Computed example of a mutant assay.
Amino acid sequence: MTSEEFLTPLRRSRLYWHTALTLVVLVAVALLARRHWPVLESGAVRLADADRGWLLLAAAAALLTWPCSALAQQGAVPRRLPPGRLLAGQFAASAANQLLPAGLGAATVNLRFLIRHGIPLGDAATALAVKGTAGGIARVALIAVLFAASPGALHLPQIGGGFVAAVSAAAAVAILLLLGPLRQRCMRALAAVRVYVGAVHARPARASALWGGSLAFVVLHCAVLTAVTRAVSLPLAPARVALLYLAASGAAALLPTPGGLGSLDAALAFALTATGAPAAAAASAVLGYRMLTVWLPLLPGLTVLIVLVRRRVL
């Protein structure tokens, strides 16, 4: 199956727009980095002198994110997948996600993996959607729990009721306009998804893997950032760090840069400094988090990706 079978003209057009927006964001981030280079430099120096014990703990949490991602992917598929290849596929997908915008890299790798293992294209795409939805719900649930446990951990800006009503009305109109001409097709697709989700949740082991892996994946990323903040002597409560990470990653998702490059870094740095953290310490925490979750695994992940492609696993 060639890439042309996956990319319809509409999808290619979206890819071009995403790529253009990515370039704009990266240029803006490069300009900001040049403007604040002394802060970044002092942050790198501070990271070099960070506590090694906390950094090792952060690295261990980062390593566990890939087994959790593999567990969630297996939970979204009724058929049993080979565990070793599945784990390698998730590692390769995380590296590919740093090369293409809007999560296209990971989605493409995972889709190819599922198809190569005998899952029809429609079911494979549904499995990815189910996994993504479970991850989103896990994030919302974690935010709700953290807010309930620590109501003062994060201060939200005041938003007027008129603004909320206007946004809600605009969203409702957009949904009606988009779904109106495609209502029957959407209804058939939703019916197929309901059948698929029912088949997954009919097996308790699959449902547990899906939701447990999705939640553990998010918690571990929060743990990585928390451990790095402790390593650079940034005294923030774990609940606050977790909420800051969830808020920043949610905001960064609105800008489709590869792996959140630039957008997540800026959002995390802004969130940390907004709590009163020194700029150098915030830069150190962001650099440490990105180093452990992106830069250090990138070359090994790309190597695994090439090996899997050559062995026709992908």
Rank of each mutant, 00 (worst) to 15 (best):
residue 2 T to P: 15
residue 4 E to M: 11
residue 7 L to S: 03
residue 12 R to V: 05
residue 14 R to V: 14
residue 17 W to I: 12
residue 22 T to C: 15
residue 23 L to E: 04
residue 24 V to E: 00
residue 27 V to D: 13
residue 33 A to Y: 11
residue 39 V to C: 12
residue 41 E to A: 04
residue 41 E to N: 05
residue 43 G to Y: 12
residue 47 L to V: 09
residue 47 L to A: 07
residue 48 A to M: 06
residue 49 D to S: 13
residue 50 A to K: 06
residue 59 A to T: 01
residue 60 A to N: 01
residue 60 A to V: 15
residue 61 A to G: 09
residue 65 T to P: 01
residue 65 T to A: 02
residue 67 P to F: 10
residue 67 P to C: 05
residue 70 A to M: 01
residue 71 L to T: 12
residue 73 Q to H: 14
residue 74 Q to L: 04
residue 78 P to T: 09
residue 79 R to L: 07
residue 79 R to A: 11
residue 79 R to F: 00
residue 85 R to P: 10
residue 87 L to Y: 12
residue 89 G to S: 13
residue 97 N to Y: 08
residue 99 L to E: 09
residue 100 L to E: 02
residue 102 A to I: 04
residue 106 A to T: 09
residue 111 L to R: 04
residue 113 F to N: 01
residue 115 I to Y: 02
residue 119 I to N: 04
residue 121 L to D: 10
residue 122 G to A: 12
residue 123 D to G: 06
residue 125 A to W: 00
residue 128 L to H: 03
residue 136 G to E: 00
residue 140 V to C: 06
residue 142 L to Y: 06
residue 153 A to Q: 08
residue 157 P to Y: 04
residue 159 I to H: 11
residue 161 G to T: 14
residue 164 V to W: 13
residue 166 A to P: 11
residue 177 L to I: 10
residue 180 G to I: 01
residue 184 Q to C: 08
residue 185 R to K: 12
residue 185 R to Q: 09
residue 186 C to V: 15
residue 187 M to L: 15
residue 192 A to H: 14
residue 194 R to M: 08
residue 201 H to M: 07
residue 205 A to C: 01
residue 212 G to E: 02
residue 229 T to N: 06
residue 233 S to T: 07
residue 237 A to S: 14
residue 238 P to H: 11
residue 245 Y to S: 03
residue 251 A to K: 08
residue 260 G to E: 05
residue 267 A to F: 11
residue 270 F to E: 07
residue 278 P to T: 09
residue 285 A to K: 05
residue 287 L to H: 04
residue 287 L to S: 11
residue 291 M to H: 01
residue 298 L to H: 07
residue 301 G to L: 06
residue 301 G to T: 03
residue 301 G to K: 01
residue 305 L to I: 01
residue 312 R to N: 11
residue 313 V to S: 10
